[in-house]
C-alpha cells in the first residue's frame, strides 16, 4: 500500500516538475533579477551601476508620482467595477439559456478576441472620430456639442479598457453561474424572499469564486495598462505602464523602470495575498 502511494507520488512529481521548472526559469528568475535591479543605482548613460541604493523607491513616492499611482489605481478600479456590472447579468442570463443559445452567445463573445488587440483599439479611434458617425448621432440627439472631443480623455481609456477586458469578467462568472442550481432561487422565493433578495443572498454568494476570479482577471491587466492610455488617452491619462516605458526608453534609467515594475507587482500581489491569507485564516478558525 505504501509502495503504491510512493509510485503515485513519483508520477505526480514527474508531471509537475516540467511546468514548475519552466515557471522558475522563465518567470521567477527574471522577476528576481528585475527586483534586484530596482535597488541598483543608474548612470546617466543607461548603465546599471554596482552598489545598492533605496533612492529609486524614495523617488517613486514623491507627490508627482503619487498622482500617477493613484490615477492607475482608480482607473483600474472603476474599469473593474463597470466590467463586473455588465458581466454579472450577462453571465446570469447566459447560464439560464438553452445549450444552443449559450454556445452562440459564447462564440459571439470570444470571436472578436481573435482579432488583434491593437487593431481593436484602432477601431475605437475610428468609432470615436470627431467626424465619425457616432459623433454625428450624438450631436443630432443633443447629447454632446459640436466641440466635444470623445477621444484623448481619461473616460475614453476607461471605455476601451472595459471593452477589452469585459470577456475576462463574463467568462468566469458564466462558468460559476453554470454550476449554480437555479431551483434554489425559486426555493428562496417560495420561502418569502424577494427577487432581489434571492439574487443577492443566494445567487451572489454561490458564484463568489467566479466573481473573485473575474475581479482579478480584469484588475491585474488594467493596473499594467500601457497601450490603451498611450493610444486613446489624453494628456492626463498616463498610467504606471507608460511611466515604465518612459524610464526605460527615454530616461535610460533601467533601475527606475525596475522599481516601478516592482511597485506594480506589489500592487497586484498585495490584494491577492490578502484574499488568500483571509481564506487560510477563516479555514483555520473553522477548525
Amino acid at each position: 500500500m505504501k509502495g503504491m502511494h510512493n509510485k503515485k507520488n513519483l508520477g505526480e512529481w514527474l508531471v509537475t516538475i516540467p511546468p514548475l521548472g519552466w515557471l522558475f526559469i522563465f518567470f521567477m528568475i527574471p522577476t528576481i533579477i528585475a527586483i534586484t535591479i530596482a535597488f541598483r543605482p543608474s548612470s546617466p548613460y543607461g548603465d546599471i551601476e554596482a552598489g545598492w541604493t533605496l533612492e529609486n523607491f524614495i523617488m517613486l513616492f514623491s507627490p508627482t508620482y503619487i498622482t500617477i499611482i493613484w490615477r492607475t489605481i482608480w482607473i483600474s478600479f472603476i474599469s473593474t467595477i463597470i466590467c463586473l456590472f455588465f458581466a454579472l447579468p450577462t453571465g446570469y442570463y447566459m447560464a439560464r439559456l438553452s445549450q444552443k443559445w449559450r454556445q452562440i452567445i459564447l462564440l459571439l463573445i470570444i470571436v472578436p478576441f481573435w482579432t488583434n488587440f491593437l487593431i481593436r483599439i484602432f477601431a475605437w479611434k475610428i468609432i470615436l472620430n470627431p467626424e465619425g458617425i457616432l459623433q454625428y448621432i450624438l450631436i443630432s440627439l443633443g447629447i454632446i456639442s459640436k466641440n466635444t472631443m470623445m477621444l484623448y480623455r481619461t473616460e475614453t481609456v476607461i471605455l476601451v479598457t472595459v471593452y477589452t477586458y469585459l470577456p475576462f469578467a463574463i467568462l468566469p462568472i458564466f462558468a460559476a453561474a453554470e454550476k449554480f442550481n437555479f431551483k434554489l432561487l425559486e426555493a428562496a422565493q417560495d420561502l418569502g424572499a424577494s427577487r432581489w433578495e434571492s439574487f443577492s443572498r443566494i445567487f451572489l454568494p454561490n458564484i463568489s469564486k467566479g466573481l473573485k476570479v473575474a475581479t482579478f482577471m480584469v484588475m491585474i491587466p488594467c493596473l499594467g495598462s500601457y497601450i490603451i492610455p498611450d493610444l486613446v488617452g489624453g494628456t492626463n491619462s498616463e498610467m504606471i505602464g507608460n511611466l515604465i516605458a518612459t524610464q526605460a526608453f527615454i530616461a535610460r534609467n533601467i533601475p527606475m523602470a525596475a522599481a516601478w515594475a516592482t511597485v506594480l507587482m506589489a500592487m497586484i500581489l498585495f490584494p491577492m495575498g490578502l484574499v488568500i491569507s483571509t481564506k487560510l485564516l477563516s479555514r483555520k478558525m473553522a477548525e
Binding site: 546617466p44 508627482t64 508620482y65 498622482t67 500617477i68 494628456t235 518612459t246 524610464q247 535610460r252
Partner: peptide, 17 residues
C-alpha cells in the same frame, strides 16, 4: 547633457502628472 538629463525626466513627469 549627461547627468543633467534627470532634470528633464523629472520635469517631464511633473508636467504629465
Amino acid at each position: 547633457i549627461g547627468g543633467e538629463n534627470t532634470k528633464y525626466v523629472r520635469m517631464w513627469d511633473e508636467i504629465k502628472a
